[in-house]
Simulated scan of single mutants.
Amino acid sequence: MSLSFWIKLKILWVITDVQKIYYPVLATFGVPVNMIAIMILVRGKCGLSKCVTYYLVAMAAADLLVIIFDLILRQIPITYRDEFLFLLYIHLCNIHAVILYAATDCSVWFTVMFTFDRFVAICCQKLRNKHCTKKTACAILGTVTVMSCLKNIFWYFMYYNKYWLSNSPWFCRVPPNVSSSIVWTIIELMHYIITPFVPFILILLLNALTVRNIISANRARRRVLGHTPGASASDAEMLSRRKSMIMLFIISGNFIVLWVVFIADSILKRFDYLGYPVPLPTFVREIGFMLQLLSCCTNTFIYAVTQRKFREELKNGIMFPITK
């Protein structure tokens, strides 16, 4: 065997050892931080609009479900497979798969919808009053949830109902006649195109359009203020726009950075179906899983960094047992 093969194998062994610590630690932090974010946001004292609050609560709830059904009930049993062999005899895997993939779709598409909402709020002044409302937010979030569930219901019929403790995207046993069929190939390709490839492209596009609009608007506003006697150097509208932009870019940037490895691996591996195989080391997929799951645990910290009132609510919550 070649030297490069042994190097890749050793890297994979190291990553596997790291996962035995990384996944339990991530679960230990991921569940409480998302629950804390939900509780703080639901109180409605962070100075955010109802519309934004609904999106952030939905994103935190979806992330929490991904942590439970993907990290705790999938990746940790795979990592500690010797201790979780009982899973092989549990007839729940196809149900688990439907919930897991629906939750993942919701987590990703809620981020897209939030990005679009902020794009409208910042760049489309005429549409903002009609679109950026709690009623519209509820309708969009409900529609995305229903569509995600319907999109993934077919996994129930594509899998055996027993687990297969192998660290691959498909953790349930697949009947041989299904895995070799053209139907499976099409469904698998469409699954990865719809989530997360299309959301990835949409977020990049919406952010690019938002940046271009903000730069143009700020230049025009500076020219107007520059010819207005007594105009304040710290314009309130520009300050508000800047705060919205910072939170939007950090949240969407976090998604892009932490999902890019998983997306690249998922798309390149599917080139095999087209007759253009792109060999990738197995450890790339493992790193993709690790970063993807990390993205479900970071939004609370983003809110704390970008939102002063969120930090105050978080501090009050921490100090309450002490000052009581």
Score class of each variant (00 low, 15 high):
residue 3 L to P: 00
residue 12 L to V: 01
residue 13 W to Y: 07
residue 16 T to Q: 08
residue 16 T to I: 07
residue 18 V to K: 07
residue 24 P to D: 02
residue 25 V to H: 08
residue 36 I to T: 03
residue 36 I to H: 03
residue 36 I to V: 11
residue 47 G to N: 13
residue 48 L to Q: 09
residue 48 L to I: 13
residue 49 S to D: 06
residue 49 S to N: 05
residue 50 K to C: 10
residue 51 C to R: 04
residue 54 Y to T: 09
residue 55 Y to V: 06
residue 61 A to R: 03
residue 69 F to H: 05
residue 69 F to I: 09
residue 71 L to W: 00
residue 73 L to V: 10
residue 74 R to Q: 15
residue 74 R to V: 07
residue 79 T to K: 02
residue 80 Y to S: 02
residue 82 D to A: 05
residue 82 D to W: 05
residue 86 F to R: 12
residue 90 I to D: 06
residue 90 I to C: 01
residue 101 Y to E: 06
residue 107 S to N: 14
residue 109 W to V: 03
residue 113 M to I: 08
residue 115 T to V: 06
residue 116 F to K: 00
residue 119 F to E: 07
residue 119 F to L: 05
residue 120 V to Y: 03
residue 120 V to H: 01
residue 121 A to G: 13
residue 126 K to V: 06
residue 129 N to E: 15
residue 130 K to G: 12
residue 131 H to W: 15
residue 131 H to P: 07
residue 135 K to A: 05
residue 142 G to W: 04
residue 143 T to H: 10
residue 143 T to A: 13
residue 154 F to D: 07
residue 156 Y to T: 04
residue 158 M to R: 04
residue 159 Y to L: 05
residue 162 K to Q: 14
residue 162 K to A: 10
residue 163 Y to I: 10
residue 167 N to H: 11
residue 170 W to S: 11
residue 170 W to D: 11
residue 175 P to F: 12
residue 182 I to K: 14
residue 184 W to H: 14
residue 186 I to V: 11
residue 187 I to L: 15
residue 191 H to T: 14
residue 192 Y to M: 15
residue 196 P to E: 05
residue 203 I to S: 03
residue 203 I to F: 00
residue 205 L to R: 13
residue 207 N to K: 01
residue 214 I to Y: 09
residue 220 A to F: 11
residue 224 V to I: 08
residue 225 L to Q: 05
residue 228 T to Q: 04
residue 229 P to T: 00
residue 238 M to D: 07
residue 241 R to A: 09
residue 242 R to N: 09
residue 242 R to D: 06
residue 242 R to H: 09
residue 244 S to F: 10
residue 248 L to C: 11
residue 253 G to K: 01
residue 253 G to E: 03
residue 258 L to R: 00
residue 261 V to F: 10
residue 265 D to A: 08
residue 268 L to S: 11
residue 270 R to H: 00
residue 276 Y to K: 13
residue 280 L to R: 13
residue 281 P to T: 06
residue 285 R to P: 06
residue 285 R to T: 08
residue 285 R to W: 09
residue 296 C to A: 15
residue 299 N to Y: 14
residue 309 K to P: 02
residue 311 R to S: 01
residue 314 L to G: 10
residue 320 F to Y: 15
residue 321 P to M: 03
residue 322 I to A: 09
residue 324 K to S: 15
